[in-house]
């Protein structure tokens, strides 16, 4: 028999879907700003393997010669990005939802098993509640990253008024590099996230919009290890 199982709170769903377009705009406007002084590359022993970013990337996304516009959008949507993040964080702390989110001691070991399972190398996945071990680590990391973007952003934006923050980020250059790397991190997170969402299927996706999952008692649960087996 089918039953409805509540999964994601309304607030978690709202902040998730508000964050998606806001972060997209932040990354896009950030790329426009970065273009004006695009000095980063992956260079080892004098050989440049990749330049951020190739001209084709700029041309395709119409990034170049729009610094003033990029700054205006970046410094408007930063407010929404920050506010949305603060709301989510406060809710997660106050509601106790952090218990399902934060990695546990065993998560770091289990995440490896989850990875092997997802790659079809292992049949069994560790038992889980709302999030599996890999999700706990990934979703906590993305919150920490968001906070990092905010702090490094402030360090670059007002390095005189918030000199202490700039100092904590290791200086102006370091703050700018971290800000950039975090952004690249979001893009990678997004790619893996999308693949996982597609693989997880409709029931999982619906939960992030409608809040609930449908549990079918006739269908067996996915194979999981019992804690006892896991000890071996």
């Amino acid at each position: 028999m089918k039953t409805i199982k509540e999964k994601h709170s309304l607030l978690m769903r709202w902040t998730h879907w508000v964050n998606f377009p806001v972060l997209t705009i932040m990354i896009w406007s950030g790329a426009i700003i970065y273009w004006a002084n695009d000095e980063y590359s992956i260079t080892l022993f004098g050989h440049t393997y990749f330049k951020f970013f190739p001209q084709g990337f700029y041309d395709k996304l119409h990034i170049g010669y729009r610094l003033r516009e990029g700054m205006a959008f970046h410094f408007l949507f930063m407010w929404f990005f920050a506010l949305n993040g603060v709301i989510y964080l406060l809710y997660t702390i106050v509601s106790g939802a952090w218990r399902e989110l934060l990695p546990q001691r065993k998560s770091f070991k289990e995440a490896w098993l989850v990875l092997l399972h997802d790659l079809h190398i292992r049949k069994m996945a560790p038992p889980q509640n709302k999030y599996n071990a890999a999700q706990r680590i990934a979703y906590t990391a993305i919150i920490v990253m968001g906070f990092g973007s905010l702090v490094t952003g402030l360090a670059i934006y007002k390095p005189v008024q918030f000199a202490t923050i700039t100092w904590l980020c290791g200086g102006y250059h370091s703050a700018r590099v971290i800000h950039f790397i975090l952004t690249i991190g979001y893009v990678f997170f997004f790619l893996i996230h999308i693949i996982q969402v597609i693989l997880a299927g409709w029931n999982n996706f619906r939960a992030v919009v409608a809040g609930f999952e449908v549990v079918d008692d006739n269908k067996p649960e996915p194979l999981t290890l019992s804690p006892a087996e896991d000890e071996k």
Partner: peptide, 29 residues
Amino acid sequence: AGARAPMRRALNQTELAFRRFFSNNHLVK
């Protein structure tokens, strides 16, 4: 000039927000 009208309003509002943090005691390194 040159900015979209609502974007200019946003820039001006953001200026007001950050002016509160300005201080002569905040010196450039």
